[in-house]
């Protein structure tokens, strides 16, 4: 089990998600897998705010500056300087020693400050618990604790997803980021996100 970091402590691992836009076929398997794994009770209910399935992954269809159709998947970026962590009045949002931004439900009163503080709009309220849900979901945390990959990584039929430690130069994510062109979202927001979008060649 991973532990909560106090102010000023640095995580031992810096676990990061990598999504390879050049491989993603927009099949939605990860979106579905995320919900059925982490919030199975939401498979028959909608996320009213997003008018979508209650998944920790949001699909955005857009068009590049060159007019090329593009798809973007977003989820919690596990920011190294996370605004949601800075604003949470009760310390419910915290970083663990894997560098993941997590939620302690005992301390959350549902004020939603983390939601308005997240530049990526990746938190949604569970209609019953009123917890501001996001990646990593509870079951995914259990999976990674057991050394398995999270549901979205496992479910991707195109091999477009990966999750691993940036501090380990030999991890598959480190290798990918060294060898392929990638970028982060809202780079200038100063959040130091740990969600990497690998770009097409």
């Amino acid at each position: 089990m991973s532990t909560r970091l106090r102010k000023g402590q640095a995580p031992t691992k810096r676990m990061a998600h990598v999504w390879d836009a050049s491989k993603c076929i927009a099949c939605g398997a990860c979106v579905m897998a995320c919900t059925s794994t982490n919030n199975p009770d939401m498979m028959m209910r909608e996320e009213k705010g997003w008018n979508s399935i209650a998944s920790n992954i949001r699909r955005i269809d857009s068009v590049s500056a060159q007019g090329r159709p593009e798809v973007l998947l977003v989820q919690c970026q596990h920011c190294e300087d996370a605004p949601c962590l800075n604003t949470c009045p009760f310390g419910a949002t915290y970083m663990d020693d894997n560098g993941m931004i997590r939620l302690d439900p005992r301390m959350c009163s549902g004020c939603s400050y983390c939601v308005t503080s997240c530049p990526y709009n990746v938190r949604w309220f569970h209609p019953d618990s009123k917890l501001p849900k996001k990646c990593m979901g509870d079951t995914c945390l259990e999976l990674v604790d057991k050394g398995l990959q999270p549901a979205c990584v496992q479910s991707c039929p195109a091999g477009a997803r990966d999750y691993g430690d940036l501090n380990d130069p030999n991890s598959s994510v480190s290798v990918t980021l060294r060898t392929k062109r990638s970028r982060r979202l809202l780079e200038n927001a100063g959040t130091e996100p740990k969600y990497f979008v690998v770009e097409g060649s």
Partner: peptide
């Protein structure tokens, strides 16, 4: 407005017992 207002006592209790005060939060300051 708090989605989990009923959890407020436990929230405060946990904060105090664990000595977790996030002074970088304007809401806490407020």
């Amino acid at each position: 407005h708090l989605g989990r207002w009923w959890n407020l006592p436990r929230t405060l209790w946990t904060m105090v017992t664990n000595g977790i005060f996030n002074w970088s939060s304007w809401m806490l300051v407020g």
